[in-house]
Design a protein around this nucleic acid. Structure first.
Lengths: 359, 359
DNA sequence: CCGAATATTGTTAGCGCTGTCATTTTGAAT
DNA sequence: ATTCAAAATGACAGCGCTAACAATATTCGG
């Protein structure tokens, strides 16, 4: 036995040397075991693991970060998401992080932050994260992506909207939106209104495409009058609803590009005295808790955001591992597409027989 | 000039030596400037700061963490909050962190986590945070608090409910709840129902106290039949509402201990055909976005959660600073109480003259 | 059973910073 | 000027870990 117990018995906190002493190996071997490096005899590894358990050892991330190149810390960047979206994303990300021994650090631009890319760069430099999770719409800002590629930092995008290569997770917004509209058409609706999302969110466009596509497939003429502006919030849904319902020939159904706006539409309808779903069907998108706090409960599309974020985090960790091991360009784009099922609740029904028409 | 430029000109990243060389001082002096230590000549400090600006230097938190005792990282621990609550808390915390150059790391117990205190301890050991922000109801778990005190880690509680010393921020739940009930009484209500919050959240009790206190102050008899169980979620609000409205003599107003449950009560009322606020007044607590997505918009109490979290974070950073400088026990309990104003919207109105009574 | 190839383990030098303590400089009082 | 405490600055040893390389053990072909 060549190892010498040079350190005091584990006092304030246990270090790698304590473990090495306990297991009767060198600190490097302990390090190997911690990092799952090859070429450790199984018996040795087990002895080390036992010592780790015995001493309740946890490696110091600062020391690891300083010595190696990994900080064991991931960053999650968001900007103006809905609280629910963020919450679910964080929950998923955290789950994956815990699994892999990573910590999760958050960052969001200040309200008065001018340049997102600069902020991201500063955050990365300051916190030394190993990779970034980009929550929409941050993942759709080319300047940010370019900056990250320039400094060579792995990132994964949640719900990206362009075709840029690189790992990401998403749902097929277009297909899901089509499904909603087809559901309405099957119920017998022909005049179907649409409330667009925020123009900066790429999802807005995809959902609008889906809306139009479904109409076209069923030979229903697209009427731009029936497509109202929106910004993904309750207010704008309210305004859009008021606009649509006061058209000369109002729609019998309205599909809002997210739940918040659908809630706004419902409120508009109620203010104008429309019965839902008897006189107007409404559908949303996202399946946020709002959709169940509404009356009647909202027909919507469920986005598995937690799962998506979890998978995104796993992809990110994989990517970090690969880069760390020197494999520069990992195989292909690696986009994972998730199912986004339609959830039919109580705001959609066949149109009333009496043709509703405003004076 | 004794300093020697021994390092390559700032390449991959700038270190303290680069700054020292640029400013023509020793690295220790740069360190002093970074850490606002005393005994640096203003002119020298300025020269160093200029070099820092020039080279765009940011200290490496890993190295700082390893060498010093501070990791420049705060932890935020939550468990089952409402997404909105968490969102606002994070926003506030992040703002304070950015101000002070701290990073924010999140942690939440897994769904199947048995022992919160153990989890917290593990998190702390693993991430080496300098202090913890405890989001309710985590700050009300004595085991967690005890554990943190044992390992001597600073923490600040947001909305704590007991009288334990130590820094925290809170609102006066009881007074705010009283204000709601008094508002209802002023409108002319006498039979006022209450939906309790989750029994584990201490706020539940405080709000119930406030409810009862207001009644007592106005010589209204407390009727335990009018106090329904709840768990702070929509479901339980729905059930509670159904229960209350189907009493032989139902209340003319219902105060739910948070907005989600108020939404549930409103849905229950609607299912049973009650008009709001004509036949039933409803009030909530928290002023979450839900309260504005409801129709009619909800009368509620606004909790300045973002501000509270911001202030809590500042307190935490202060505390960390003081401990670091050796002042063991900082002055007093340092609890900051925030105003929680009543927001009267459209779900409260005078009771209808016709006494509503179920068959 | 020998030597080379391979698998396993150990040694040592930092990573970038802060703490400690030594050294130099400054400035006010002789 | 001279003295000397106080202020300002610097030298240097780690913090706990990993990377690179060195050293040793093990295995295998003949």
């Amino acid at each position: 036995m060549t190892t010498i117990r040079k350190r005091r018995p584990p006092k304030g906190h246990v270090t790698i040397s304590d473990v090495a002493a306990e297991a009767g190996v060198s600190i490097k071997t302990v390090s190997r075991v911690i990092n799952n490096e090859p070429n450790v005899r199984p018996a040795t590894a087990e002895r080390v693991r036992e010592a780790i358990r015995q001493l309740d050892y946890l490696p110091d991330p600062s020391a690891r970060g300083l010595a190696g190149q990994l900080s064991w810390m991931l960053g999650l960047i968001y900007d103006n998401p809905s609280p629910n979206y963020l919450f679910r994303a964080i929950t998923g990300a955290l789950q994956a992080c815990n699994q892999a021994g990573y910590a999760l650090s958050l960052q969001a631009p200040d309200a008065n932050e001018r340049d997102l890319a600069t902020m991201v760069l500063r955050f990365v430099a300051q916190s030394r994260v190993d990779g970034l999770l980009l929550i929409p719409p941050v993942g759709d800002v080319p300047a940010v992506l370019d900056a990250l590629e320039r400094i060579h930092l792995p990132y994964v995008r949640v719900a990206p909207l362009d075709e840029r290569p690189g790992p990401g997770v998403c749902i097929d917004d277009r297909a899901a939106a089509s499904r909603v509209v087809e559901h309405l058409i099957e119920l017998g609706h022909e005049r179907i209104g649409f409330v667009r999302g925020h123009p900066d969110h790429g999802a807005s466009e995809a959902r609008q495409d889906g809306y139009r596509l479904a109409l076209m497939r069923h030979r229903i003429l697209i009427d731009e009058q029936l497509e109202a502006e929106g910004r993904f919030d309750f207010e704008s849904g309210l305004v859009a609803g008021q606009y649509l319902l006061q058209l000369d020939t109002p729609p019998t159904a309205i599909f809002a590009a997210n739940d918040e706006m659908a809630a706004g539409v419902i409120q508009a309808a109620r203010q104008l005295g429309w019965e839902i779903p008897a006189q107007l069907s409404v559908a949303g998108f996202d399946d946020t808790p709002v959709s169940r706090s509404l009356w009647p409960p909202l027909t919507t599309v469920h986005q598995p955001i937690r799962h998506m974020a979890l998978r995104a985090t796993e992809l990110l960790i994989e990517e970090i591992g690969q880069r760390h091991r020197g494999h520069e360009k990992p195989p292909g784009p690696r986009i994972q597409v998730f199912d986004a099922p339609l959830v039919v609740r109580a705001t959609t029904a066949p149109p009333s027989s009496s043709s509703t028409e405003n004076p």
